[in-house]
Design a protein around this nucleic acid. Structure first.
Lengths: 238, 238
DNA sequence: GTCTCTTGATTGGTATACCAATCTGGCGTA
DNA sequence: TACGCCAGATTGGTATACCAATCAAGAGAC
């Protein structure tokens, strides 16, 4: 944790509550920026913070490292910094991954599955909560990936969503193009139902690029200072 | 134990094997089929086998689980079975991943990098050792991935190679189309140098399919009995 | 003979003690 | 003042003791 002198929000740490396991809680803390990008982590400090011993904490750290949410440099651990370059690479990767998903989903998806996905989509249209809406967005892309019938693509999409989740969280307050996203999702679904794979892939690409550009702006030079002031470690290259 | 008194002897241990860490050794044991697919693993048994305590072993198991080399079912751990379906999915995934690599490598690779890759390729032509030759094959695809300048694609290729390594090991004794692979690799490199991305992607696809078909045959019904006789857990669906 | 229940062994999960490497701060010297 | 060096604190790495859940084997009833 950065020096306690930097107060942005009252960080609700140091609550040795029980309930979810150490991994889930630590992961949530990172993804919601409760633990800031670049922040140094000490197993002993987490011991007090999470109310468990180091053994489950080490397990959590190992898992989070595999997810790319924390990094080791030498012996010390820190929350992975937000790199603009990395986010852009994630989106570049995503275009190819979701292109593949589109093609395979066209081959394998049943009308029933597509209909169910549409239901999920429409249900999300009502919910007002921004966080819940983000959830819907992730679910859509994940469920779509499952239609590819390829576990590696599912994992790839899962990884991507994890990697960019913190960036999405940062722009949580930004004006969200919510209905627009719903329309785009529906459009993608329709194209897949019609087996128009290339168009679906293209739509997914454009959909992702929209989000990418918003995120890139949020992480860009112009906004960097504001994030830094909140303690977020945003890196250009590194 | 009374460790305070004398530094004379380590607290425990009769196992001499000290060199590489538990993770590397366990990983190697799995990939070389020294630990068979489907085999049950017990942390305590590994403790004796590897000559370390459970702490580093648990770390190793966590990492290997993230790599998909071992799986948890309930509380027990076992080496991931070889599933024909999974191998086929890995190859399907690979086609998309390497297609993406081809396109991006065409955009980013420098002539110098391509030349260096060709050198590695030619050097591998001499080595007679089948295992070393496999190594070259993996290195080629990994180095190629790096030319994409996308860390996610690099990781994806790394993951794929890990996933199919055991299957490759099984066919280690099969007649290897060695010079053929060298020619294909060189051909791919040439196409990328010429910025003919689509053709390079197609060549990579055909190259991978060649290997896939050999592996699929090795894991197929016909060969299943032989593998089972050797103790390998080969699964059709499940 | 077989089915079930009990019991002991084995397992993964957790907490903790110890060590060596690293970091840090402060003191002494040039 | 600036530099460097040393001691104490802190850290991650390791070993190990303990627990609860699970599994397996054996005894006993029918």
């Amino acid at each position: 944790m950065t020096p306690d002198a930097a107060p942005s929000q009252p960080p609700h740490r140091a609550s040795p509550e029980r309930g979810p396991d150490a991994y889930s809680r630590l992961r949530a803390a990172i993804l919601t920026l409760d633990l800031l990008p670049g922040e140094r982590l000490s197993e002993r400090a987490l011991e007090g913070m999470l109310g468990t011993s180091r053994t489950p904490i080490r397990e959590a750290l190992l898992r989070l490292e595999a997810e790319g949410l924390i990094m080791r440099q030498g012996r010390s651990l820190r929350v992975t910094s937000l790199e603009l370059a990395e986010v852009l690479e994630a989106f570049e990767y995503r275009e190819y991954i979701e292109g593949a998903v589109a093609h395979l989903a066209c081959q394998h998806a049943t009308p029933d599955e597509l209909a169910r996905l549409q239901v999920v989509l429409d249900a999300g249209r009502q919910g007002a909560d921004a966080a819940a809406w983000f959830e819907i967005g992730s679910d859509f892309h994940l469920m779509l990936a499952r239609l590819s019938r390829n576990r590696f693509l599912v994992r790839a999409v899962t990884d991507i969503l994890t990697r960019i989740e913190r960036a999405r969280w940062i722009m949580c307050s930004l004006p969200s193009a919510r209905d627009e996203a719903h329309d785009e999702h529906s459009q993608i679904l329709r194209l897949i139902a019609d087996k128009r794979a290339d168009e679906a892939a293209e739509a997914l690409k454009l959909h992702a690029r929209g989000l990418r550009d918003i995120l890139a702006e949020a992480l860009s030079q112009r906004s960097r200072a504001g994030l830094r002031a909140r303690g977020v470690d945003v890196v250009d290259r590194a």
